[in-house]
Every structure is written in structure tokens, then in C-alpha cells.
Amino acid sequence: MGNEGRTEVERLRAADSDREKVAEQLKAALDEGRLSLQEYDDRVREAYASKTYQELLVLLTDLPKPGLSAAEVAAKRQAQARREARKLPTALLVLWTIWAALTVVNLVVFGLLAATVETELYPWPVWMIVPGAALAAVTVGVQAIRHQQRR
């Protein structure tokens, strides 16, 4: 529904207050030196002639929000890219969740048995380290491959 909902909104008719907001953003872009006077005049004329939100949004697509420098825009994009790169793929998140749940269950059962049984118990939960180490190796490998692909 992400793009469908957006295109439906873009087809809605714009109000005078919407046109004025776009004109204010264009004025801020002119003041910051992002638009020439001729570009500003053309865009403001188009803004006041616009009937839909889509026609208004087109006038702003190549402009950052007022007050942001090019360096700030680039820094925000880089930060977003780094956040996306650190995110684990969904499949790995599911596998880590399953491993953690199984490890907790094993530890709880072992703890309950150790507390109630008088004999020495074999510490079987230690074997959960093996799939955990394998999963860690796969995670590191996937992240390294994703890092190389971004370069």
C-alpha cells in the first residue's frame, strides 16, 4: 500500500494553503541560492497554477528541506545508508531468535533439573555454542559480502 496510498494522495486537489506552503519553500530555496530568480519565478507561477499535490511536489523534488546544506543532506543520506547496511537480513534475525529461544529453554530446563536432582548432570546446554558459533560465522560472512557489494 506504500506507493498506492501515496499516488492516491498525489491525485488529490491542492488547496490555496498548500500552494502557499510550496511558494514559501521555493522562496527559502531562492534565499539559500539553490534557485535562480528566473527558476523561482517559473516555479512559483507553476505552484499557483497547480491543481493537485503531485503537481506541487514535482516543483520541490530536487530541493532539500529549507535550512539544510548540501553537506547535511549528504551526511543524512550516508547515515541512512549505514543504518540500512547494519541491519541484518530477516532470515538471519529469525535464525538468531530461534537459536536464542532454544538456548534459553535448554538453560532453564538444565537449571530446574540441577536444582531438583541430587546427581551430577551432564551440562548439555554447552552444545548450544556450536550452532551459535555457526550462525555467528554466517552472519559475519553475510555482512562482509553486503559490505563488499556496497563498494
Rank of each mutant, 00 (worst) to 15 (best):
Q149T: 02
S17W: 07
G5W: 03
W99Y: 06
Q78C: 04
T7Y: 07
P125N: 01
R43T: 08
P89N: 03
G67Y: 15
T119W: 13
R11V: 00
L68P: 06
P89S: 03
D31F: 14
I98H: 05
A133T: 01
L12W: 06
K76N: 13
L59H: 09
R43S: 11
K27D: 13
V138G: 03
T61E: 14
A71S: 13
R13K: 10
T90S: 04
Y122L: 08
G33Q: 07
T90A: 07
A133N: 00
G111P: 00
V9M: 09
E55F: 07
V22G: 04
L92G: 02
R150I: 05
E24T: 10
A47G: 10
Q80N: 12
L88F: 07
V73H: 14
W127R: 00
W96I: 02
E8H: 04
T61K: 15
L56W: 06
A71Y: 12
A85V: 05
V58G: 11
E4H: 07
A49Y: 12
V130T: 00
Q54W: 05
R86T: 06
A71K: 15
L121P: 01
V9Y: 11
V104G: 07
K65H: 13
L102C: 08
V109H: 03
R86P: 02
L93Q: 09
K21N: 09
A114V: 01
L37E: 15
A79Y: 12
A70F: 10
Y122P: 00
W127D: 00
L112T: 01
E20T: 08
V108D: 00
R34C: 11
T52A: 09
L30Q: 15
T97D: 03
E20W: 03
I98Y: 05
E20Q: 14
G111Y: 06
E118K: 13
I98E: 03
W124D: 00
L121S: 03
Q54H: 11
P64Y: 14
E4N: 04
A79L: 13
L92W: 07
G33M: 12
P64N: 13
E8F: 04
V117C: 06
D16N: 09
A29D: 09
K27P: 05
N3D: 05
Q148F: 10
M1E: 03
R77Y: 07
Y122Q: 02
A101G: 12
V104K: 06
I98Q: 03
A91C: 00
Y48C: 06
K87N: 06
T61D: 11
A49C: 07
W124E: 00
A28V: 08
A29W: 04
